[in-house]
Design a protein around this nucleic acid. Structure first.
Lengths: 338, 338
DNA sequence: GGACTTTTTGGGAGCGTTCCCAAGTCATGC
DNA sequence: GCATGACTTGGGAACGCTCCCAAAAAGTCC
């Protein structure tokens, strides 16, 4: 027979009885083509099942239609947290809507980071989304130097002038603690996230804000650091109970830690929310299915992903002159633990 | 100055004082090049920070170096199950080792499936990995027709002649139930997964195998169907307790269902494992951190991903003549619930 | 030292697009 | 009827690379 491999533009043009250039114009929805010719080309495209070859297109347009998502995070966290799944889903959906492909790069070793380095060039991807949360990772910095649009998920203090989309961790934490105070709690402890992460610090600061607003003194004995995991929430809460047995509320900077806190509280003979109210942060599915449902600050993960994708595409188009920052609002979902 | 954009092969060649062809040979580690020239080219590559342009390369070699991972699954499942994260991680690692890129495509609407259709051609990706689990999704079928290597995660009865990597669900379930019988349990119930999924059926069949091996009659009243979720495990177990209050063990086809089962049992005043032993399936992190740790059948998720990637790359190379099937062993992790 | 073989090298052709310029077509106006 | 301008159209050139062939260089043997 004939065609080995997919049909080419040339073949489409031939079948439509037009020139290559005209066929190209039709396919790119471009300017002036007579309706008749357009029809003929479209028909040929349909007949042949033509799909433009991206490699060839990329070669001349210098646009690949691919956006890389770099996740530099330990195996453990990627596994444990629904965070990534939610954000990835949002990114994926938005890129799909824009007919872009998502290239996923999980970086889990220096070797992988090196290889990635070569790949992340304007010749291979139009833009880069980075989800790392940690303050480490020099990655984004030299990307911007290479002139490749980059958007971070979560603010980075290491690179304040970067474009990013973040959730309003501080305001969320503040709202959570205000909620506890409004319900009459007066001795509000907090299990913070790692203070080496922006999100961890922001949520702790929000806790501080709420206390200050209420004219309450901040007692270091009411603050214990965790690492967002359930086990750390459990341990931190035990420590808090030891230091301040009179505490009547706990704000945990993650839902998993809140769950650990509840377990510790119950083990210590405290009822939740009777003796001690608990509020978490994240809005993971397990929080909702918990008995009773956890009061928590819900993050718009899907939207975070979508906004990141949208922002990087905007930068690829070159629309915004400089970096952009977007902070998404979070929402308190009152459950039965507060 | 000079170079706008990344350096090209031509520039590398010029700087090394050799021809384009020679430079290409060095970069592709090819055959005969004198050590001196090789050195010069390598130096030039280093000096210029040259990285081959994949689009140009793809155009002529007809290899893109990209492998697509298609996940056709509801939002809910992608969120809820660590399954995907685990497999993705394995795939990612293996592809990185082979210097291939992972293109992630979450399909969540017919529209997205359509667009994907155009993308999944030999001109864009070298191979396709599909993770869907459901029996629906006609996707893989026409992919093979297009001559693009495809590997499924999980056996598909809709497409038995496909290449796939699966975990040995049936043997795992059988082992789990044998374990219960060995511990003296005699009235073993099961909460199955959806019978519309291969994994759901296989695990139920393994349950049947173990009973048959032990010469026990299969009682339909001891079988209830769930959908792998915790809530369904809870509900199914309640139904089982109603029908057979004398049951002394439950094999749940997923860890989440096992957790739901334990909750239902405790609510019904049964102690675990005292009155009723429980075994799950999956090996999710929550199972290990449960109190007491859940006895469960652990799936090698990372390895599943790695083997899928390895298999598809093998097919891209054209090594195997026909389809391949690989079934990975699973392992019983005895915890405190059995 | 010359004829021959082997290794090494340079560069033309071509992969499938888009871009752009020149040429062709068609009304319109006088 | 013919110049003028506005649309359309065809196809050359280029994007950066690999493949391959022929030429050059380096060995080898008698």
């Amino acid at each position: 027979m004939s065609a080995v491999g997919p049909p080419t533009l040339e073949q489409v043009a031939a079948r439509a009885g037009v020139g290559r250039g005209t066929a190209s114009r039709v396919i790119n929805g471009s300017s002036q083509v007579s309706p008749r010719t357009r029809e003929a080309v479209l028909q040929a495209v349909a007949d042949l099942g033509y799909v433009p070859n991206q490699a060839a297109r990329a070669l001349v347009t210098r646009r690949t239609g691919m956006v890389a998502l770099v996740i530099a995070e330990s195996e453990e966290r990627i596994f444990g947290e629904p965070f990534f799944a939610g954000v990835v889903r949002g990114i994926s959906a938005e890129l799909a809507d824009a007919s872009r492909q998502l290239v996923l790069s999980l970086v889990q070793s220096a070797e992988q980071a090196d290889r990635l380095h070569g790949f992340l060039s304007p010749a291979h991807v139009d833009g880069v989304l980075a989800l790392s949360i940690h303050d480490d990772g020099a990655l984004p910095v030299d990307l911007s130097a290479r002139g490749i649009p980059t958007v971070l998920g979560g603010r980075s203090e290491r690179w304040p002038e970067a474009s990013y989309v973040d959730v309003d961790n501080r305001a969320g934490a503040r709202t959570a603690v205000q909620h506890l105070l409004k319900r009459g709690r007066r001795t509000v402890a907090t299990v913070t996230g790692p203070q080496g992460m922006t999100a961890g610090r922001d949520r702790r600061d929000g806790y501080g804000d709420a206390l200050r607003d209420a004219g309450l003194a901040a007692d270091p004995a009411l603050v214990a650091e965790g690492d967002f995991s359930e086990a750390s929430g459990h341990a931190a809460t035990r420590a808090l109970l030891e230091r301040r047995p009179d505490l009547d509320a706990v704000f945990a900077a993650s839902d998993l830690m809140a769950l650990g806190a509840i377990r510790a509280l119950r083990e210590a003979g405290r009822s939740v929310p009777g003796d001690v109210a608990v509020v978490g942060f994240d809005g993971i599915p397990r929080a909702a299915s918990h008995e009773p449902p956890l009061t928590t600050v819900v993050q718009p993960l899907d939207r975070l992903g979508r906004e990141m994708a949208r922002m990087v595409l905007r930068h690829v188009e070159g629309t915004p002159g400089g970096p952009e920052q977007l902070v998404l609002p979070v929402e308190l979902a009152v459950g039965g633990t507060s």
